[in-house]
């Protein structure tokens, strides 16, 4: 792992809202092409961590680097950073007043000032891959939740981000739609996209992750391979957490 090029480095990150510490001394390195899944109970700071990486939250201490360049607390230049960090949110975040295609074109054209023709070709190719090319002129309200999330993924991908962040993107979906969205992500992983994923889908986490990071009460508790984490977790807290998903014990 250490031989690989590091894309994202989080060093001693500390985040608090007034007196409440949300993230405390978090250190994570993500290498190129690596898929890191962040697990943890509700309120442990998983989503906040992603929001810090994307600069939607300022951090109080520590630094975040993207390809060696400092990206934390950049204020004025933050929009340039975000062009390199794609993010998909839990709630469907498409722009309701734009068609699917325009949703995807907005970032590449307005933020990156790319040629419309070229972006349209790419957008259509990506839409076809997620099986939604026929929806390109539809409005978001005409799509199901799963379809919207797939479009949101395409919209982020079209920016050619160096790393993609997924914040519980299947949490608000029907079980059947979860699958279609997760399949898209599995495919991205296969292609070597660098991803940081927050999820509550344990089976999925195990299938997609190169590395699992377990957060609890604002601290990084455990970091291990998925195999290791799900079979022989190192910490008591992780064991406890995983037992919640084991219904055999409850029986």
């Amino acid at each position: 792992m250490s031989k690989k090029e590091k894309i994202l480095e989080i060093k001693h990150l500390k985040k608090n809202y007034d007196d409440t510490v949300v993230l405390n001394d978090i250190n994570i390195d993500v290498c190129k092409g690596e898929v890191v899944v962040i697990l943890g109970p509700s309120g442990c700071g998983k989503s906040t961590l992603l929001r810090c990486i994307n600069g939607l939250e300022t951090i109080q201490e520590g630094e975040i680097y993207l390809s060696g360049e400092k990206i934390s607390n950049q204020d004025k230049k933050m929009h340039l950073v975000r062009q390199k960090v794609g993010m998909v949110f839990q709630s469907y975040d498409l722009f309701p007043h734009l068609t699917i295609l325009d949703n995807i074109l907005l970032g590449p054209m307005k933020a990156q000032h790319r040629e419309k023709k070229e972006v349209v070709v790419e957008a259509e190719k990506l839409l076809e891959r997620v099986g939604l090319l026929d929806k390109k002129n539809a409005y978001p309200r005409q799509l199901s939740g799963g379809q919207k999330q797939r479009v949101a993924i395409v919209r982020a991908l079209c920016m050619h981000p160096q790393v993609m962040l997924f914040d519980e993107i299947t949490a608000a979906l029907d079980p059947e739609m979860v699958r279609e969205v997760l399949d898209v992500m599995l495919e991205l992983a296969k292609e070597g996209s660098t991803m940081v994923i927050v999820t509550h889908e344990m089976q999925f986490a195990r299938a997609i992750a190169d590395r699992i990071i377990f957060l609890d009460s604002s601290k990084l508790v455990e970091e291990s391979s998925p195999e290791e984490f799900f079979t022989t977790p190192k910490t008591e807290r992780a064991k406890q957490f995983l037992n919640v998903f084991d219904f055999d014990i409850a029986k």
């Binding site: 929009h79 062009q83 794609g86 993010m87 907005l106 933020a111």
Partner: peptide, 29 residues
């Protein structure tokens, strides 16, 4: 919703672009 602003920001738009292309058209309607 706040998420509209955030998802606008997350695709690399500036605050003004988010306002102009995302917030304003919806707010006017």
């Amino acid at each position: 919703p706040k998420i509209q602003r955030e998802s606008g920001l997350s695709i690399g738009l500036t605050k003004f672009q988010v306002f102009w292309h995302i917030i304003l058209p919806q707010a006017v309607t």
